[in-house]
Design a binder for these strands. Structure first.
Lengths: 228, 228
DNA sequence: CTTGATTTTTGGAGTCACTCCGACTTTACT
DNA sequence: AGTAAAGTCGGAGTGACTCCAAAAATCAAG
């Protein structure tokens, strides 16, 4: 079956700065800086002219590098938007949760901490977020990238329950939890940060815990309703 | 904000044959046939040489049309694989479920009926399935396309519960259910149809209903275990 | 500070998906 | 048959991305 070579394996996403944000030789540090500088330039252009309407050439010019060099830093145009310097931090946070702790608690805590971290450059994060949901190509990539998150959660669940990560039911559970958190993030981004990320995640996880069984109109309980 | 035009709106996916599979003028019927013939030619080539390794030119040649014409039938290369003649059938099935029926029951029934329908060209369906999970570009598109399914389920849930489709909790529920079914389909495809689609869907929905709360190793209860 | 090895940057040539469009052919209808 | 609509095709782009080899910057030693 020719499927093996069918994918031309998308070369691994931008290498995450293995450390928490300060690792690696001076060499690597500089590369990191350039990468972020390119990203900034790109996002600025995308916001001004739109994603599709901006060419790599323009981004390269704005970042004062050659188009060739752009591809040294990001394998595809999409990756400039995808790239998130916080990712490794989040992953590490998650992995370092105490072994015995119930999954949801861990998730809630991580999300809470992240939300706090985000306050720094929330503006940029939210801007990126909007792209994800408005540019088809990015939206698709994001979904796919989520697979990684799901795997993390799966591992965690496997450890907690003593089941194998191959267990079908376990995989369903992991995917379901991931989906819930995704919807929370989406709401967060689309509401432009008005609703707290931690809050939304809590509510989403509550829905999961209740077996997604929603009773009649709860119309009378206007929760964190703000404006329409 | 330039976001509005940021997406160059991916022109709508291949128009679904509005009817259940037999509607439209003679004109349209012929188009449909051509479309399916192109798809067959394409899938055959993809299987033989791999997706990325096959050019549109080759597909066009195999289907005895010009490359230009290819794009008359499918907006992108991905869509040749994505296109599913059964989609409209499935959607219609789902929409025609009795109003009062609980969502899960409806889902189970639809899935069961579909599974039965699939027996016809299961081989091709499964082949397509494998592409989805092995070719990054297709995987991503599929995730995104799932958004449509989620919307359907959301509508249905809204009707059932009397809540608004904007309700955050409802959206989470819809996404969670969709995720469960996705995992079931994925398992189905990856197991090459060994486990029944309807079975898997049932088990997945059960996990959701239980609040995704899995107890310790259930190793001792081998369920619908078949071979392994 | 010089030299040679090692990265990094860059330009150029090429592939491929996809767009735009005008010319040409087929089909449907009177 | 005659005409309008729909479908097909070819050619000339554009832009993302690959491959490669030649410059240029960086670094390590002597």
């Amino acid at each position: 079956m020719a499927l093996a070579k069918a994918s031309k394996q998308r070369r691994p996403t931008v290498p995450l700065p293995s450390g928490g944000g300060q690792r690696g030789g001076l060499r690597e540090r500089k590369k990191q800086k350039t990468r972020e500088s390119i990203q900034r330039a790109a996002l600025r252009l995308f916001e001004k002219q739109g994603y599709e309407e901006t060419t790599i050439e323009q981004v390269a010019a704005a970042a004062e590098i050659s188009p060739s060099t752009f591809f040294n830093y990001f394998p595809t145009k999409e990756d400039v938007v995808l790239y998130d310097a916080y990712d490794p931090v989040a992953i590490r946070m998650f992995l370092e949760r105490p072994k015995g702790e119930p999954l949801e608690v861990g998730l809630r805590e991580v999300l809470k901490n992240l939300a706090a971290l985000f306050e720094r450059d929330e503006r940029m994060i939210l801007a990126r977020g909007r792209f994800f949901f408005e540019v088809p190509a990015l939206r698709a990539r994001l979904w796919d990238e989520l697979e990684g998150a799901q795997l993390l959660i799966l591992e965690m669940l496997a450890k907690r329950t003593g089941r194998s990560p191959d267990d079908f039911e376990l995989r369903v559970a992991a995917r379901v939890v991931t989906a819930a958190i995704l919807e929370a993030s989406k709401e967060w981004m689309q509401s432009n940060g008005r609703h707290g990320l931690a809050d939304l995640a809590n509510r989403a996880l509550a829905v999961v815990a209740s077996g997604a069984r929603l009773q009649a109109p709860t119309r009378a309980k206007p929760r964190t309703r703000r404006r329409s």
